[in-house]
């Protein structure tokens, strides 16, 4: 995964409460056997004029030229509620979103963001949306600043911060303990041999 240190970009204002995972990526857009190919379906219900279509809805914020290539998304309360589908985080990441700022998050969605290299920040989006120009999110300093002035501090658990800074996922972290796990299994094998004596045929 791509590490995150500093992200500088326009912030896309989509300050709506209760954006559920089905709005982020409708189930009809999850047709493939892969984590990729989802970015076209991101916010499909709002982004296109017709269900299943690809004609851009000119009124939707993502479609204007102002936010082309923007990496920061501003949203409201309870971001990512609904089904626990991880496709929501995959679609955002593939589209190029690196930071999601919300008034509050659904915990499963938030965890999925961290796992997939997206920085979730709990903050009031309104003052950030008022920033004219670009925002800079500095993960090392835990600080958001507006290039026109204004700074806001934010918090994040140490492990999540380290993972995002180093571009690691939880599998990398756990694999650092591979020897410990192998030793645990060896001891367990004598106590519960039937758990291990399986033949895959």
């Amino acid at each position: 995964m791509k590490p995150i240190r500093q992200v500088t970009s326009r912030a896309i204002p989509l300050i709506v409460n209760n954006i559920d995972t089905d709005l982020i990526i409708p189930s009809r857009e999850m047709k493939s056997v892969s984590k990729t190919g989802l970015s076209d379906g991101l916010f499909a219900g709002w982004r296109y004029t017709e269900v299943g279509g690809r004609d851009p809805n000119p009124d939707f914020v993502l479609n204007g030229p102002t936010y082309t290539g923007a990496e920061i998304l501003l949203t409201g309360d309870n971001m990512g509620c609904g089904s626990s589908r991880e496709h929501a985080a995959w679609a955002l990441a593939e589209y190029g979103i690196r930071v999601v700022i919300a008034r509050s998050f659904n915990p499963i969605f938030r965890g999925n963001c961290i796992r997939n290299g997206i920085l979730p920040i709990k903050a009031d989006p309104e003052p950030l949306a008022a920033c004219e120009g670009e925002l800079t999110v500095d993960l090392e300093a835990l600080l958001i600043s507006c290039d026109g002035g204004g700074q806001w501090a934010f918090g994040l658990e140490t492990e999540a911060r380290d993972m995002l800074l180093e571009g690691l996922d939880p599998i990398d972290l756990t694999l650092k303990r591979a020897a410990e796990i192998a030793a645990f299994r060896e001891t367990d094998r004598t106590a519960r041999p039937w758990i291990y004596n399986l033949k895959a045929d």
């Binding site: 991880e86 999925n112 997939n116 996922d169 939880p170 599998i171 756990t174 694999l175 796990i181």
Partner: peptide, 16 residues
């Protein structure tokens, strides 16, 4: 479990 957790358990025989 979720999708990423499935990968995690396949790779490590453990879950967080």
């Amino acid at each position: 479990i979720g999708s990423s957790e499935a990968e995690h358990v396949l790779a490590t025989s453990t879950l967080r």
